[in-house]
């Protein structure tokens, strides 16, 4: 507890390029970018595979395989491939981390849209894309958001690896603290990451209220 208080009470930690606000921004930048890229890959693939039922096995198996990749190992690999100084070493592993939960949940959500519902939609003259976007996706929205949320929380927690390859973010406090034996910095950094992850979680819960129809949530207001 003292470590944390020391860390937070230190005015140097609150300003400048090495201050908490700047590090939080960097952290969110990597995380946000990684999540965005992952969503751009996983949402369309998950929707398409879920709706058509084609390629389901491949998609799910490769998503699960991606889950098993050791993130740190991937970071090192990408550094070896691309060299230091780019953001690729952070982004690629983070995207690899975020794709599986988004893809699998989107796939499950769209696939699970009630058959009667799709039958009614087709029977009324909706085209394939209309059935997908006007019926299946809205109905799958809770699961899709759950996937996004899981991915976001994991990405935020894992984006600390950026510090290993000389990039910013909250990982800096942890790593620099370890190196200089300044444990208040390490603990402070870790707590900040946890708080940020919780905040992201909260943001998604709020988004849920906006993006999921009350009719799907099963409660109005």
């Amino acid at each position: 507890m003292n470590f944390l208080l020391d860390f937070l009470a230190n005015p140097e930690n609150w300003s400048g390029p090495y201050g908490i606000p700047q590090r939080v921004l960097e952290h969110l930048e990597f995380s946000g970018l990684a999540l965005l890229l992952a969503a751009l890959i996983a949402l369309p693939v998950g929707m398409l595979v879920g709706y058509t039922g084609r390629g389901a096995v491949i998609a799910v198996v490769s998503a699960n395989a991606a889950r098993a990749l050791p993130t740190l190992g991937l970071v090192v690999l990408v550094v070896l491939l691309f060299g230091v100084g780019t953001t690729a070493p952070v982004l690629i592993p983070l995207v690899a981390l975020a794709v599986p939960p988004i893809l699998v949940n989107t796939y499950e959500g769209v696939r699970g849209a009630d058959a009667d519902l799709q039958d009614a939609a087709v029977g009324m003259g909706m085209t394939g894309p209309q059935v997908l976007f006007r019926v299946c996706v809205p109905v799958a929205m809770p699961l899709i958001l759950l996937g996004m949320r899981t991915a976001a929380v994991q990405v935020v927690a894992t984006a600390t690896v950026a510090a290993f390859v000389g990039l910013g973010g909250l990982g800096r406090f942890i790593i620099d603290g370890l190196q200089t034996r300044d444990f208040s910095s390490t603990v402070g950094g870790a707590v900040l990451v946890a708080v940020l992850a919780l905040a992201v979680q909260g943001a998604f819960v709020a988004a849920q209220r906006l993006l999921v129809s009350p009719g799907v949530r099963g409660q109005v207001g």
Binding site: D119, A120, G123, R134, V139, G215
Partner: peptide, 9 residues
Amino acid sequence: IQQAGLFPH
């Protein structure tokens, strides 16, 4: 159809 198939959302 039987189950009405109304769009829940």
